[in-house]
């Protein structure tokens, strides 16, 4: 049984589990129960930042056009264009031990592609979650349901891995932004 987190909850990941290194970060959502309108295309991204919450360079922004970090520590496994199907919609692979020393946080976000044009927002997305799985054992460690907290936002910072006293922890952030991926990039210091 994974540990189910609530918004704002922080939890140890490597403390007491020193061998944990390769994890899968799965993100899922359900969209479009109704006819009409455009398909939803939700994109998961990861921002590798310093303690100040800013990326050192644009290459630390992992998304559908930059799927793999140069360190090999973070790899986006590919874009799912429709969100169809059971299980994780997008998966980002993280190798904690490979993360460069200047990376103190890895924030995972979900944004709606072309949200303004398609007049879509997270109020039309349901059952969104993030889960962290130990890739070696296949065991689900953490599960965080985003619930009903989002409305007209077009980007969500779902959660982040962060270093604390030499260990990795996870923070269930769950905060929404308007302005989509662009707003997130500005927030994390990516040049857009």
């Amino acid at each position: 049984m994974p540990i189910n987190l609530v918004k704002g909850q922080k939890i140890d990941l490597t403390k007491g589990n020193p061998n944990l290194s390769k994890i899968l970060v799965g993100l899922g959502w359900d969209v479009k129960k109704y006819d009409g309108g455009y398909d939803f295309d939700l994109d998961a991204s990861a921002f590798l930042t310093g303690a100040n919450g800013k990326v050192a360079s644009d290459a630390d922004f992992i998304f559908y056009h930059n799927l793999k970090h140069s360190s090999g520590a973070v790899e986006h496994t590919g874009d799912n264009l429709t969100g169809a199907g059971e299980g994780d919609d997008e998966v980002i692979r993280v190798d904690l031990k490979k993360l460069p020393a200047n990376v103190d946080k890895v924030a995972f976000t979900v944004t709606i592609y072309d949200a303004d044009e398609r007049r879509q927002n997270f109020g039309q997305v349901s059952n969104a979650y993030i889960r962290i799985v130990d890739e070696t054992s296949g065991r689900e460690l953490i599960h965080y349901d985003l619930g009903e907290d989002f409305s007209i936002e077009t980007a969500v910072v779902v959660g982040e891995l962060y270093r604390h006293s030499g260990e990795w922890k996870f923070n269930a952030i769950g905060s929404g932004f308007k302005g989509g991926l662009r707003a997130l990039c500005l927030n994390f210091g990516v040049n857009v």
Binding site: N121, G123, S151, I152
Partner: peptide, 8 residues
């Protein structure tokens, strides 16, 4: 409220 709006 716009489409997608949700609140208590």
């Amino acid at each position: 409220a716009e489409r997608g709006f949700r609140d208590k």
